[in-house]
Design a protein around this nucleic acid. Structure first.
Lengths: 190, 190
DNA sequence: AGCGATGATGCCACCGAGTGCAATCACGTA
DNA sequence: TACGTGATTGCACTCGGTGGCATCATCGCT
């Protein structure tokens, strides 16, 4: 497999991201993307399920890493800290390398409601994966779901700060700070 | 304003929900909806921005209630409890009346990925409103966002349980239980 | 009652996303 | 070289959504 492959996928992806950044997502047609990548419109849909997917392609493997890291946490760790630990681990391994690409992606997504909608789906499936990993550790269904969404919220708040122009701190550091702020603000007795 | 209105909006809405329930959201065309409601396809788009909106129409006023209730919480209440209190209040006032409609809506949404995607948008804007209300009370940006998403997660976990066939408990009760479970599962020392 | 403003509805043409199908092309292998 | 596989292409089609304009019912006013 992948006899020709090398090229087309990545060419379509960079052509799409460039055009989205230049003229916006809505104003860009799939025909334009295909033309700039030097191939047929139909071919685009052989590689990406729809126009939005080209932006989010290939981040499933991160979810595997996160879930594995959560399972690796010691049994005594509570669900929220376990989930956040999983997200911190992946931030170390992956995100720090793609700083520039991540900023471009953030800009493109921020400029398009349609893409923000799709990003919420990605967050949701990420939360589902995390909740499943937590349940494997013995957390009850409801508590696992809530802890997962909280951890995901912490992650994206931190990622936003990390994407700010002036920022010098690491993503893992910002995640830890955000978690601490949340716990500090809350009063944890009913 | 609303000289004729009565009829068309509600007729389109019930026609759409009925068809979605019968044949699924994707299989139903806007033309079918308009035909069953006895009007033109174009008229549908005069009342709803798109095919998905017909399912979620008119739930903005709940957000106002929630935000107001959060502002009403005493200053000493921590962000998470304040946000959850806001959601509990609205659950008392609104949801309990629409049990049957809510079940139908839940079934329709559960059967369609496209509608689930749109529901995530609604959750997101709800979280934004809650976070804004918390910031007004003096909570810092990051902590407010995380608390808001946590509260929303608690709300929807509870609403799912409330929608289960056999359930007898009130939504407000389930929300309180879910919050307690989450806090109980977590260890709140770094 | 007649009249004009307003807003709801209807009709038509158009664009672009996404799909199904069949033909074609490039490559590895026998 | 011939064959099979899988990537690519091209075409036609459906459907969601939009823009523009005509039409019609209602209201306020004279």
């Amino acid at each position: 497999m992948a006899r020709w492959e090398p090229g087309t996928f990545e060419r379509l992806r960079t052509a799409a991201l460039t055009l989205f950044d230049e003229q916006g997502f809505e104003k860009t047609t799939v025909a334009q993307i295909a033309e700039r990548a030097g191939m047929n419109r139909r071919t685009f849909f052989h590689h990406f399920a729809d126009k939005r997917e080209v932006v989010f392609a290939g981040q499933e493997q991160s979810e595997d890493l996160i879930a594995a890291e959560i399972r690796r946490q010691s049994a005594g760790t509570d669900p929220l800290h376990a989930a956040v630990a999983g997200l911190r681990a992946v931030s170390d391994q992956i995100y720090e390398q793609f700083r520039d690409g991540s900023v471009l992606l953030g800009r493109v997504i921020a400029a398009s409601p349609e893409l923000q909608e799709r990003e919420l789906v990605k967050r949701s499936t990420l939360a589902d994966r995390i909740a499943a990993a937590l349940r494997e550790r013995g957390t009850a269904e409801a508590a696992a779901t809530v802890a997962a969404w909280t951890a995901v919220a912490i992650f994206f708040v931190a990622r936003n700060q990390w994407n700010q122009p002036g920022n010098q701190r690491t993503l893992a550091d910002l995640i830890a700070t955000t978690l601490r702020d949340f716990l500090g603000a809350a009063r944890f007795a009913p």
